[in-house]
Amino acid sequence: MTILYNCGTVLLMAGVLFFLSGTVGLLRFPDIYSRLHALTKADNVGLGCIVFGLALQSGSIAVTIKLILIWLLVLIASSASCHLIARSAMQKNIQPWTRS
């Protein structure tokens, strides 16, 4: 029981770390496309870590299923809106930042 709980705590910490780095990326990255990368990927993985961490700590199947459902909803939604934002930016001819 306590082992599961501690594993959950580690996952929660990882999740918070992912959220932090997502926000750092959102502030640091040079253009809209790379910021989208930071936002979509880091936040979804962060939420996934938090969901699985809480699922381990709750020890209840009903709560676990509901948590995973919320995560799936956020996953679908954010990947769709990420694609929409990138596509509209392309149509508006916003050029991606390049190294040179």
């Binding site: 999740g15 959220f19 809209i32 936002l39 936040d43 939420l47 809480l54 956020v74 954010s78 509209s88």
Partner: peptide, 25 residues
């Protein structure tokens, strides 16, 4: 651009969900 601002709103959404989940436990 306005989309950059909207992306932050999306961050608020995901982060808000995570906060609510943490608080529920």
């Amino acid at each position: 651009t306005a989309a950059d601002r909207m992306m932050t709103a999306q961050l608020f959404g995901t982060c808000g969900v995570a906060i609510l989940l943490l608080l529920s436990t």
